[in-house]
Design a protein around this nucleic acid. Structure first.
Length: 431
RNA sequence: UCCAGCGUAGCUCAACUGGCAGAGCAUCCGGCUGUUAACCGGAGGGUUACAGGUUCGAUUCCUGUCGCUGGAGCCA
């Protein structure tokens, strides 16, 4: 691809003349000198226009051009200690591509509702770009780790005939007269795939029609779900912590600048090294009670419990062996205590809640059928799933990682809505 | 769905116990040769979310509706 000069690598052109295309981020003027901050999608650079050195129409345009107008600037690249990026452009030309109408998002404070209605413009701002860059780095690191460890990305369908787990509310869709649902997980489909390729994962959007209205929930979010044949619960906990630690290290290595733009406290991320503390559900209950939480054995954790558990360690904590009653039907029971499921959750360290949920799957057909009945699910919809227990059944485990919660935690962004370009929230689908 | 809070200029917010609806930014005009959310002077910009009520008088108090924000439950 033919490449114009770009701001993030402008140093290559030091003392040379370049033409930059981009948008006016801000401008300042002072009589016979005018400054235009140019944003090109890779960075921001200050362009300096001197009245005595540029044609009059160029000098005039540097004053009248509006915020976010698209322009083409030519000039000399100069190192300057005063410039935030280290370089400045001494401009000699400015061409207007389109004069922007008064831009709604000024370089001042704005409210959430206003910013969300202008989401398509909001992410031109520096903080939002930093989040998008980190999100991309996280995706690359997650996929890279799995790809390098022998996983095959196979992917699973988005339109599904029945509820995967029968627990959460799904979006319903007309499928040529039949009813189908938007997938809430690729997990059941991953299981036959791991019998074919041993280690598989899927990575795509998932949908929950729950009327959740918190800073940790989206109606549409991206989930990474690895599934491995002949892997037990302990193995899946190791995989999860290695995957998370690798990804955090990678972001610290590659996107420190963006983390600093966001004002992220790096010490919280630097502490994320394996092994992560493991806590049985029973131990977690004891810990919560010792901290004054009123919780009984058998209760699932609420948001406050997750926060207490997450904040009691300097890195993510893995809780395992939950009561089977609070977990999905396909979870394998613990042989030493069949009331417990071989399930595990990873809770992030700084109050961002559960980022991973998974465990070992039931491989015994009769036990699985009993569980399907117990959960009042229609067995005929799961015959293909039961086939895996008929034709060479095998122990296997996996988990799901919620991308946006993970991004929220790593970036330190308080609300999950900023971690995806176009968040789908409760009754909010514009833009 | 439930609980709590908030709706005032394009945006962010003031307006004391009910007494003339105001500021900063943005926009427009003018000034300034190194500005960093630049600054200085001036101008325009209002059905105080909507409907009703109490009152001499309502942005302010009451009722309802709508919208938004935060939280809970559910989960990643």
């Amino acid at each position: 691809m033919q490449q114009d000069a770009l701001i993030d690598t402008i140093g290559k052109h030091q003392d040379g003349k370049v033409t930059l295309k981009g948008w006016v981020y801000n401008k300042r003027s002072s009589g016979k000198i005018r400054f235009v901050l140019l944003r090109d999608g890779t960075g921001i650079i200050q362009c300096v226009f001197l009245k005595n050195d540029v044609p009059e129409h160029v000098f005039d345009l540097a004053d009248s051009v509006t915020q976010e107008s698209s322009v083409e600037v030519t000039g000399l690249v100069r190192a300057d200690a005063r410039a935030p990026g280290g370089f400045e452009l001494t401009a000699d030309g400015l061409k207007l591509i389109q004069l922007a109408e008064p831009y709604p998002i000024t370089p001042k404070e704005h409210g959430v509702d206003f910013l969300m209605k202008n989401r398509h413009l909001w992410f031109r701002s520096a903080r939002q770009v930093a989040v998008l860059r980190i999100r991309n780095e996280i995706i690359k690191a997650l996929r890279g780790f799995l790809d390098d460890n022998g996983f095959l990305c196979c992917d699973t369908p988005i339109l599904t005939p029945a509820a995967c787990e029968g627990t959460t509310t799904l979006f319903e869709l007309d499928y040529f007269g039949a009813t189908v649902y938007l997938a809430q997980s690729g997990q059941l489909y991953n299981e036959p795939l791991c019998a074919a390729v041993r280690k598989t994962y899927c990575f795509g959007p998932t949908f929950r029609a729950e009327k959740s209205k918190t800073r940790r929930h989206l109606m549409e979010f991206w989930m990474l779900e690895p599934e491995v044949a002949f892997l037990d619960l302990a193995g899946s906990m190791e995989l999860a912590e290695e995957l998370v630690a690798h990804t955090v290290a990678r972001v610290l290595d590659k996107r420190k600048q963006d983390l600093e733009t966001l004002g992220r406290d790096l010490s919280g991320l630097e502490a994320v090294r394996t092994p992560f503390p493991r806590l049985s559900y029973a131990d977690a209950i004891d810990l919560l009670r010792s901290k004054g939480r009123n919780i009984e054995f058998g209760d699932d954790f609420g948001a406050e419990e997750e926060t207490v558990l997450g904040q009691s360690h300097d890195r993510p904590v893995i809780v395992h062996r939950y009561p089977a009653a609070v977990k999905a039907f396909y979870m394998k029971r613990d042989e030493s205590d069949p009331s417990l499921a071989l399930a595990m959750d990873m809770i992030s360290s700084e109050g961002y809640g559960e980022i991973i949920g998974g465990g070992q799957r039931e491989e015994d057909r009769q036990k699985l059928e009993a569980s399907i009945k117990q959960h009042r699910l229609p067995q005929e919809a799961f015959e293909w799933y039961l086939d895996l227990r008929r034709y060479g059944s095998f122990p296997h485990s996996g988990f799901g990682l919620g991308l946006e919660r993970f991004v929220a935690w790593i970036t330190g962004v308080r609300h999950i809505r900023e971690t995806i370009p176009f968040p789908r929230m409760l009754e909010k689908v514009y833009p």
